[in-house]
């Protein structure tokens, strides 16, 4: 059964909510990371490496990275929708942004689980 609603006032709702949920995730991670770094300072290689070797830190950073990627996509897409009017150029830029964001995320996973 296909029950998509392609018109009306509701199709931006999911993105709107995602933008806020991801913002809260990133804010929490930022505060926690800042607290951890300030407590462990000065940071040398040993401390730095050990921090990112911990399971909870890797998972927390992954959640942060997913939030960043999602938030980034919605944010940059909104900017493009506001300022880039030619449809072809806008599509090309949006595809570029999706690929870039996906690449960032893949790279982050690679860094975390090396």
């Amino acid at each position: 059964m296909v029950s998509r609603i392609v018109v009306g006032a509701h199709y931006g709702w999911r993105d709107w909510l995602a933008q806020r949920v991801t913002a809260v995730v990133m804010a929490l991670y930022s505060v926690i990371l800042a607290a951890v770094l300030l407590r462990r300072a000065p940071i040398d290689y040993g401390v730095w490496r050990e921090l990112f070797a911990q399971g909870w830190m890797r998972v927390a950073t992954l959640l942060f990275a997913v939030s960043v990627a999602w938030h980034m996509w919605i944010g940059v897409r909104d900017i493009l929708m506001d300022y880039v009017k030619p449809v072809g150029l806008r599509l090309a830029l949006q595809v570029f942004v999706v690929l870039t964001v996906a690449g960032y995320l893949g790279w982050t996973v690679q860094i975390l689980w090396r």
């Binding site: 490496r49 980034m72 940059v76 860094i111």
Partner: peptide, 23 residues
């Protein structure tokens, strides 16, 4: 808010590079 957001989208490439090297 917009300008800083766009800036961070671009700069993530650089920040990831530094995170990658530092670890």
């Amino acid at each position: 808010h917009r300008i800083s957001g766009a800036l961070m989208f671009v700069a993530t490439l650089w920040l990831l590079f530094m995170l990658d090297r530092s670890l």
